[in-house]
Design a protein around this nucleic acid. Structure first.
Lengths: 142, 142
DNA sequence: CTTGACTCCGTAGTCAACTACGGAGGTAAG
DNA sequence: CTTACCTCCGTAGTTGACTACGGAGTCAAG
């Protein structure tokens, strides 16, 4: 019914706001990542800011290397799955996210060092981006 | 440490060690991400642990959402580009990596809270995975 | 009430990143 | 030396994630 749903957008303005192609939104709907709001009998669909937030989340998660399938699982958490399921899933995802953070922090450390030292040391071409990653993956934390 | 097969793997054992398909390694060679060691005149190529480390790095970076093109740039840093170039590139990549870390930490926070609270609160289906991400920080690209 | 931009929907095409195939040749254990 | 498995290499196919197309319907400004 009517509502004071903040913003009512067409798919076009939604797409623009989320910086995502209209066709892509429809693609996500087909995959079940986004729901289609019901269409008022020979009219056009309207979207609210929840849809917008969801789209932005998908975009960011993609950028972070999650597949659409994984994103679907993350979104299921939001959508309220059964509690124990959700908890288990959440814990798995949390581990996953933390692994990614750890990996990125390793790269961050090396890049940082590289940028610092790059022009100060004349000798070695040792910018050990790889070396540091190659050891100490499973072993190291933080 | 690990039993180093160091300096003399065939492409097959390299692939197994890096958990990457042989064909994929050859594909990376074609793209210039990996160099082909020279072939001893009607013999077969041999790979060392530097190649292995490089492959593992590529795998991880892919997992973290970097494209092969971006990975190529990161690897250029390792390979010793000119200093100022390298520094500039390194700084850009560093910013990029830090953005990713920040995003992941946001997701981490929300997931953590979700896992904690999930079963303790009956009422709200408010597991605001999205909500928290939607505010936060807007921009970011690359 | 016309016109132009937009929506809807199914289908088809594109692009990056693999992944597989097949035949000629190399390698190593028995 | 045979046999089984591997490498090499070019080419072709697959998968996931979009992206485009086209025709029919819809909305809103003039």
């Amino acid at each position: 019914m009517s509502g004071s749903k903040s913003t009512s957008m067409t798919i076009g303005s939604l797409a623009k706001a989320a910086e995502i192609n209209v066709e892509t939104i429809r693609y996500y709907q087909r995959l079940g990542l986004m729901t289609e709001p019901k269409k008022p009998l020979g009219g056009i669909r309207r979207y609210d800011d929840v849809a917008l937030a969801r789209l932005r989340f998908i975009r960011r998660a993609r950028w972070l290397g999650f597949s659409l399938e994984e994103i679907g699982e993350l979104l299921k958490l939001e959508d309220g799955t059964h509690c124990d399921e959700a908890k288990a899933l959440g814990e798995r995802k949390l581990g996953n996210v933390r692994d990614k953070i750890r990996s990125l922090q390793q790269i961050e450390g090396v890049l940082d060092q590289l940028v610092e030292e790059c022009c100060t040391q004349k000798d070695s071409v040792t910018c050990p981006l790889i070396a540091s990653l190659h050891e100490g993956f499973e072993t190291v934390a933080q």
